Amino acid sequence: MKRLLITGAAGALGRAMRARLAPLAETLRLSDISDLGTAAPHEELVQCDLGDAEAVHRLVSGCDAILHLGGISVEDKFSKILNANLLGMYNLYEAARANGHPRILFASSNHTVGFYRQDQHIDTTAPMRPDGLYGVSKCFGEAIARMYFEKFGQETALVRIGSCMEKPSNHRMLSTWMSYNDFKLLIEAVFRAPMLGCPIVWGISNNDSRWWDNSHAAYLGWKPQDNAESYRAELDAALGRPDSTAPLAVYQGGNFVKDPIFPEA
């Protein structure tokens, strides 16, 4: 493709994907509200508040595809989540509608279903059970994407990311972990697919103890290569076995289920 837009490019996941995705497009347009550093020869850097509709329209113009990582990625005050994750999502989809419907990969979250127990195995037909305001914002994002697909034909992969990082840092992540390399392979599969639609995809590696069924998305041709099980002994030695009654060991959303609602003041 000629130009790939990555929102949230200054975040941890955006930084991890920045170099890995360079071969995917002639130009990477990198956007964030925070500092993006220095542009490489194949990069365009655009500072943008997702809550600013005009700025988002300019941001999307000329892009062939969008990797939407932008927004608040943890539990926070509703006003912050509202601007970045709700208003920002609407602005992005209106901008895409006005600019030729570039295909989108939306970084949704496992926290859309965080109140399921870890002994439950679910697929994408399971009702949403968000574990906080952040999870609710991702439910909203999935709903916006679905409406724009049904109404306007806007294709989006709704990727419910588990825990995408270099390696798992607790026992819950033995089920939720997705390696950087497997995420890269998923991004390539989403933008390569002749037809996408609007599928929900669980963003996890090929973990032995996974809770989520991805069989419905097999048509994408994505085959994750890594397995969190290889880190189990390391986690056992470093952390010991977790308390079996703690939220981190009971709920798929882990400690998010007990996080308080942040006050506005």
Rank of each mutant, 00 (worst) to 15 (best):
L45Q: 02
S169E: 15
E43T: 06
L50A: 12
R232N: 08
V46Y: 11
R241Y: 14
K184Y: 15
K77M: 08
V136G: 01
Y231G: 08
F256P: 06
P127A: 12
T112D: 04
G197F: 06
I161N: 07
G203D: 14
G141V: 08
L248V: 14
P199I: 06
H42I: 08
F78N: 04
G135T: 12
R58I: 00
P130F: 10
L174T: 02
L28H: 01
V159W: 07
T176S: 12
Q47R: 15
A157W: 03
Y251F: 15
E234C: 09
T156K: 03
I6C: 00
L220C: 11
A246C: 13
G254C: 07
E234M: 14
I81P: 01
T112E: 04
S108T: 00
R29N: 02
L133V: 01
G62R: 11
L5M: 08
F106A: 07
K138M: 08
L4T: 13
A217E: 06
D32W: 05
L105W: 03
E264A: 07
G135S: 02
F262V: 14
R20S: 10
G71A: 08
I33L: 14
D236Q: 08
H42Q: 02
C164W: 01
G253S: 01
L158T: 04
F183D: 07
H121W: 11
E43H: 01
S109A: 09
R18G: 10
G8Q: 10
A96W: 01
Y180G: 00
C139T: 10
G203M: 07
P199K: 11
E150H: 13
R15Q: 15
Y148P: 13
A189S: 15
I261V: 15
K138G: 06
M165F: 00
S31E: 05
Y251T: 09
L13G: 05
Y219M: 14
K77E: 15
L248C: 13
M178E: 13
K258C: 13
P260L: 10
R172E: 02
S205F: 01
T176Q: 13
P224L: 05
M17A: 06
A157E: 09
A249H: 11
L105H: 05
L220E: 09
F256D: 09
P247N: 05
M147K: 09
N255I: 08
E26W: 03
R210E: 01
M147G: 09
G51D: 04
R103Q: 00
L186K: 07
Y116A: 02
R29G: 06
D236E: 05
D243L: 05
S244M: 13
H101A: 02
T124A: 10
W211D: 12
S61I: 08
T7P: 11
L174H: 07
Y148K: 07
C48S: 10
L21R: 04
V60K: 01
L196C: 12
C63T: 11
R172K: 12
G197C: 05
D76L: 00
L4F: 12
I104Y: 01
L69V: 02
D119R: 06
Y90P: 00
A12P: 00
T176L: 14
L86H: 05
Y90W: 11
L86W: 03
I187L: 12
T245Q: 14
E150M: 13
L5Y: 10
Y93R: 00
M128L: 09
A10T: 10
R29W: 03
D123H: 03
G141W: 03
D182L: 04
